[in-house]
Design a protein around this nucleic acid. Structure first.
Lengths: 119, 119
DNA sequence: TCCATACTTAAGTATCTGCTTGACCATCTA
DNA sequence: TAGATGGTCAAGCAGATACTTAAGTATGGA
């Protein structure tokens, strides 16, 4: 399971609940490492390690100013994950619609915006 | 990190690349366990274990018909993850916009991190 | 009935992960 | 300049995780 594309790193990073908690807090605003650590019931060092993972995955950007490291969300990272999910869901739901058509005619209450059929 | 809400289970499940590969294939159509296993370079038993995790997280539904277990995607599971992500991103981007307005216009690429106030 | 197919389950293992401790460095404030 | 504050780094450990093997069950077909 040693893959390591961008998507892999992002979903791996989001797989941990403390890291998701960090993303959650950062979505409400930029924050220092020790501010992030405060409500987290783990040591500062552990938070730093989580931040490393988050930064390598592209979900978070950090910048050190003086002795304080300021952390902020990188929305593009979230976007990548979101897109992966919505593409998969889209594929499935389109397939499902087509099956519905086959089974009982063109009576779909949910009009999927159809573009060109690829493949 | 022994949380275990729905979101936790879903992101944990998506954290593994083989499990994501399974979701990927299932997004293209219903499939049996051994069909899923074929391109995966791990044993059938391992695939069954991954499917267990996916099913418990609500990302996949399976049904046994005769001796074949047929697996399909549960789009609602993907939806939960998607929503979590887009909510966080939304929060961040809305904050970002507001800050941009405050500063001087709708196009601030780099919000200056404020550092002077203590407490 | 016999064999193959399609899983299922349990037990064991190697590797990974999250976390801690403790020593350390850099910056700020009095 | 001294001490406090904020963060960094490395080593090590316990438990989680992904995986394997091996033995077993249920179903389908000849």
């Amino acid at each position: 399971m040693l893959n390591h594309g961008a998507v892999d790193r992002i979903f791996h990073a989001l797989g941990d609940s403390n890291r998701r908690a960090i993303v959650e807090r950062l979505s409400r605003g930029t924050m220092s490492v020790s501010d992030l650590a405060k409500p987290l019931d783990i040591t500062l060092a552990a938070v730093v390690q989580h931040l490393q993972v988050l930064e390598e995955s592209g979900l978070v950007r950090t910048e050190k100013i003086g002795r304080v490291r300021s952390c902020q969300l990188e929305p593009g990272g979230l976007r990548v994950a979101e897109d992966w999910l919505s593409n998969r869901r889209g594929l499935w739901e389109r397939r499902f619609d087509r099956l519905g058509e086959l089974l009982d005619g063109p009576e779909r209450p949910n009009p999927t915006p159809r573009k060109k059929t690829k493949t």
